[in-house]
């Protein structure tokens, strides 16, 4: 399957991906609601860049007791009505990119809006092996 892939060597740390994701999927610019996690900051060891994206590992689909998350044609589908707000998906996601909301969760739907905003092609849509 193809999924979002992050390339740290290309990332400039502008966070446009976070803004694009939250703007597109949540209707507001709020980097904490983004369904990916990219950081670039100076530490004692110099510049540290890291990023996590949904690689369609599907741990959330397998774990959800209510069947609220499903995978269809390489995309996650979330069903708010079925969701019981148990939070299990958030805790099992190996990439920690499921966002907890007041009601329900935000899962990456591979919409690629983030990649469309990335100025340096640090986010691409590529074949992933799980």
């Amino acid at each position: 399957m193809k999924a979002l892939t992050f390339h740290p060597d290309k990332c400039i740390g502008c966070k446009l991906c976070h803004l694009a994701c939250s703007g597109h999927n949540e209707g507001q610019f709020n980097p904490r609601l983004a369904r990916l996690q990219v950081t670039s900051c100076y530490t004692r060891d110099g510049l540290a860049v890291s990023g996590r994206t949904c690689n369609l590992d599907l741990a959330c689909v397998r774990a959800c007791p209510a069947g609220a998350i499903a995978e269809k044609k390489g995309r996650l589908k979330f069903n708010l009505e079925a969701c019981t707000d148990c939070g299990l998906c958030v805790s099992v996601c190996p990439n920690q990119v499921i966002v907890e909301k007041d009601r329900g969760v935000g899962v990456c739907v591979q919409c690629r809006t983030c990649a469309g905003w990335c100025p340096t092609e640090a986010l691409t849509f590529e074949e992933v092996s799980n």
């Binding site: 400039i12 740390g13 502008c14 966070k15 446009l16 803004l19 670039s40 100076y42 110099g46 510049l47 860049v49 100025p119 340096t120």
Partner: peptide, 26 residues
């Protein structure tokens, strides 16, 4: 130059992270 670094929301990334044997600075 070791990397380019941007301010929030900026695709232009003016920052040049420079590193030599002795010193590093943006």
């Amino acid at each position: 130059r070791a990397a380019k670094k941007a301010c929030f929301a900026c695709p232009l990334a003016c920052g040049n992270y420079s590193r030599t044997g002795r010193a590093a600075v943006e």
